[in-house]
Design a binder for these strands. Sequence first.
DNA 1: ACAAAAGTGTTTGGAGTACACCCATGA
DNA 2: TCATGGGTGTACTCCAAACACTTTTGT
Lengths: 236, 236
Amino acid sequence: METVNVYNPHVSVDCVVFGFDGEKLKVLLIERNIDEPGEQYNDKKLPGSIIYENENLDEAASRVLGELTGLKNIYLSQFKSFGDPKRTSNPRDIYWLENTTKMKIGRIVTVGYVALIKINRKIKIEEDNKTVQWYDVRDIDNINLAFDHNEIIHAALEHIRHTLKVEPHLMFELLPRKFTMSQLRILYDVIHQTHSDVRNFQKKMMQLHQLVMLDEVEKNVPHRAARLYKFDRKKL
Amino acid sequence: METVNVYNPHVSVDCVVFGFDGEKLKVLLIERNIDEPGEQYNDKKLPGSIIYENENLDEAASRVLGELTGLKNIYLSQFKSFGDPKRTSNPRDIYWLENTTKMKIGRIVTVGYVALIKINRKIKIEEDNKTVQWYDVRDIDNINLAFDHNEIIHAALEHIRHTLKVEPHLMFELLPRKFTMSQLRILYDVIHQTHSDVRNFQKKMMQLHQLVMLDEVEKNVPHRAARLYKFDRKKL
DNA sequence: ACAAAAGTGTTTGGAGTACACCCATGA
DNA sequence: TCATGGGTGTACTCCAAACACTTTTGT
């Protein structure tokens, strides 16, 4: 039994997918190529899609992420909707949308989601043969982005800064299964734009009672190897 | 120069308007009457509207609030969007929508806003001759509500509980210009479902450095009159 | 042996919490 | 004079922040 998926061309979801490479906080962007008279125009966009008539918003965001990465069970959370009429007024964006969806497009309100993923998971990292790449969040103001995606990313950043402050265990969504205390601290500092004291940070994290110290150390480092920890979500 | 306002029947805003009467946290609901064969059906709904094609989401929410209360400069904040396809599947809701808007209605995604208002401001409190009334938030589960407005109110409550914890100065949006420390404490406790210690609460609030003690006391109380305070948003 | 990062405790100040009695006012 | 809430201080605990030296390992 098949059901046909009909698009609703008035509402979309966009996912701001965050990853952490051990040093920098990164966002996934998809290359967009538009054939224009005489030349090709290239920029980047967030992974997103207009919704299907028969799916809810969370399902749409989850679908977008699944199609992009092949992954399930990713942390995904709605954070804000963007509905300025002008956000879909750029002729280039309209042209691209109508070409891609084969539908007449007017105004689109988009619902923003943030996703947190482990950057080391080898994700499919392609979508319709378009290049998908990680970009340092500190560079996004210098990247040419479609629609209001620049504004969306900034709002997403603010949102996760706040959320990860209140729920620090969500940081573990961004780290490999086994990680060192330094990795965790660097991640924390990158997100909150701080410089944590090593000793105080260790104490604070251990007080969460969600970290398990492993009998294992990192490998292939040109200095003393650091102990590895894992996250135990059962505790608390 | 007039511009015609055209509706976009795919996206709406709904406002969860909170007020505080000195004892209880309240929400504004509008009576909804639907003529059905043989009888009239009555329930309540949140103030809301489908958006105009030429306004953004904040403007739509602000318009709804202006039309309802006649007030400007109300604290208003987007908190979550609701887009389950089933939310607009109840035939009664569809019937009412199509009658009200004179448009063919399919699926509507709604963007939720919370507003905080001073309940003593004599608001217009009528909309198209429909009764608008304050309801104790603790009673909402016993009230018949349109669409998914019950779910929206619950999400709004959770949202302001969190927000007022992080930004306690927003409580002053719910209080009269001059208020007693007890009023503030009761409000705090109603929102956070706590029982604060009187002395500790006083200290905590004064540490915000945003309260000015006035040379004035409350009137017409059958016991010792309490000192009045005002909020000074300049500080900090 | 040296370079690089890991690992580890103590002290101090501020905030949160617990707790009880007298005061002012109107009825 | 009584009932009702208003107003006030101290002691304890816990968390956050500041701060420096020794250890391990690879080159």
